[in-house]
Design a protein around this nucleic acid. Sequence first.
DNA 1: CACCAATCTGGACTTTGTCTAATTCCCGGA
DNA 2: TCCGGGAATTAGACAAAGTCCAGATTGGTG
Lengths: 136, 136
Amino acid sequence: MHYTRDNMAGLLRSHDINPTHQRIEIAHALFSRQEHLSADQVMAIVNTRHSETSKATVYNTLKLFLEKGLVREVIVDPSKVFFDPNTDPHHHLYEVDSGKLSDIDAEHIQISGLPPLPPGMVTEGIDLIVRIRRKA
Amino acid sequence: MHYTRDNMAGLLRSHDINPTHQRIEIAHALFSRQEHLSADQVMAIVNTRHSETSKATVYNTLKLFLEKGLVREVIVDPSKVFFDPNTDPHHHLYEVDSGKLSDIDAEHIQISGLPPLPPGMVTEGIDLIVRIRRKA
DNA sequence: CACCAATCTGGACTTTGTCTAATTCCCGGA
DNA sequence: TCCGGGAATTAGACAAAGTCCAGATTGGTG
Ligand SMILES: [Mn+2]
Ligand SMILES: [Mn+2]
Ligand SMILES: [Zn+2]
Ligand SMILES: [Zn+2]
């Protein structure tokens, strides 16, 4: 499966998002690459040829995608949020020096011994981040 | 064990940190509470009585503590970093609505199935964050 | 007491993200 | 084709977290 701009409209509609030019471009930036991108990076990609999409729209759209469950947020870097087109349960490997972020399939990972949740609370998600760096 | 200002000088020295008034106050803010605090919160605590410590010093000092391994950084909130006086291996429970952050003892947690590291890389740490919220 | 390296400081600056009021877009009906 | 109007987009002001720097302060040592 690879993601063309033409695919994007359907994908957006299937997530209850009205497909507009800007939304299609932003979705395409994320899904065609299948990479973790910051808002800034999305902004740069979408405006390479000629300026097309404002900063406000990039932020609004990424937040909308998030709410609609089309993308996921990854919080590993204290200075910026990454947006992840992969919404399957999975974890992350973070190379702290380069900032490179890659996926760890959740399938083989087993986490046990978690304490019971406080009453009336539900789990929204479990984030596992393996921080690595080049050997000294 | 409870942490008084008098204790702090020794604690700092044992981490190769020259104990100054400001550093003692900042360490005391973190260790006497044993809580996860943002730079802003540290700033507020340290300057309650009368303004004593500048923003630059708070940030510089927290970074110094981090480098010297006296505290640990917790990245769960996209808008600010928390500093953690607990450097024992442990994980975190994050209440997304209230922003409340609490520790999960690492002792009983078991994580298995992690993929092998890329060659020449070492693990700097494994962060497990359980995000919870009030049931709908 | 004077010296001086280490530390601290105010404030300018940067970056990431938010907000708002005004404009533009686009679809559906006449 | 020509509206009308709600949805979407926009520029730019604003806010919050964090960084940086040049100058002032401090406090231990001779
Ligand atoms: Mn284009
Ligand atoms: Mn005081
Ligand atoms: Zn991912
Ligand atoms: Zn903790």
